[in-house]
Design a protein around this nucleic acid. Sequence first.
DNA 1: GAATTTAGTCTTGCATACCGGAAAAAGCCA
DNA 2: TGGCTTTTTCCGGTATGCAAGACTAAATTC
Lengths: 198, 198
Amino acid sequence: MPRKAAARVKDVPAEAISRHLGARVKQLRSDRNWSLEALAGASGVSRSMLSEIEREQANPTLAVTLRIAQAFGMSLSELIETPGVTSSITVIRHHDRAFHYRSDDHCRIRTLSPLNLEKDVEFYEVELQPGGALRSAPHFEGTREFLTVVKGLVKVESNEDTDTLHHGDSTTYRADVPHAILNAGKGEALVFLVVIYR
Amino acid sequence: MPRKAAARVKDVPAEAISRHLGARVKQLRSDRNWSLEALAGASGVSRSMLSEIEREQANPTLAVTLRIAQAFGMSLSELIETPGVTSSITVIRHHDRAFHYRSDDHCRIRTLSPLNLEKDVEFYEVELQPGGALRSAPHFEGTREFLTVVKGLVKVESNEDTDTLHHGDSTTYRADVPHAILNAGKGEALVFLVVIYR
DNA sequence: GAATTTAGTCTTGCATACCGGAAAAAGCCA
DNA sequence: TGGCTTTTTCCGGTATGCAAGACTAAATTC
């Protein structure tokens, strides 16, 4: 068995890189009746490279892609994003490491909402080992947290206030002050947390 | 003196490529307490490349940048774009009937956020018996729901899309179209639901 | 404090992004 | 059809993106 060649990114199916970037560039260019030469002039990217990109035979660098976007008078995002396609459902699987926001011995946090997609709300799952705690510095003014306990015994602190929650209890508190979530029980604790920025 | 090399894109000032992409990656990574090794594992991009990118010494290809974005659970655009009271605590006890939003044989809904206090976000716990379903007419334009399955086997429908979720899986979907949450398993199902109105 | 582990940077080597110019296609008008 | 122009693809060379492993420094464990 020949040993596996070094996995290079180029080997990734071209379509996966950025769906139809080539087609998109070609479209924008012909919309404007530009030749490769014209686009090359406007972008500073060589005709040959542009040709390859349009035929999906290249894996352009960020810099080159950015220049092309600028030549069309748009941002990278605008160039890359397929306009108007918002798939209805997005799923985050339990074991998807990409969403393990943070993990250490005492505390594991999973992101349940695509971060930064929803700007002012975040949804987390937090697992705390006995004695474990999640302490946070104040967030922006007006930020509140909503929390519900699925398993274990949890103590919540916000400012000087403190409260203890059992399985099934929920709470909301100010998060624009120092606050903390602590596992006050003997077993593992599991809570869901919604953070709302104002 | 060697003759002037052909002007390559790499020669462009690094900052211009994508403002502080390196810093951004580094930030996201340390936010999550990930080592380069961990990020390499999650993204499929080598440590060394990641190191170079963070130090702004590389001009990554689109493919690599995309993989990094995916490892962080965000889109390319999201990665590239620059981001940026009296008693503190209110508790809702598990058995407090006042917050049983709705109860019937098949479906029990508890409100975990004081309703109409936070106007554009609501937080629910939904319990579905086998065969039970929660069907909703479209909410306001732009409304999305975030859902995570704590127990059971759940099917989600939004528009024509459908997906099945096991324990620990999460999803987000459009709620401004007809949508439904169904218990597709043999036992009781428990999910947490966040609704965001736009 | 030596040995082990864990973090990051540096080095090596290959595949390829990228450029400039040549060859090939495609129009376009007699 | 034959030339003339314009547009696109092909080709050769250079610089560099990228992966893998070596190396170094810091933190842990014994």
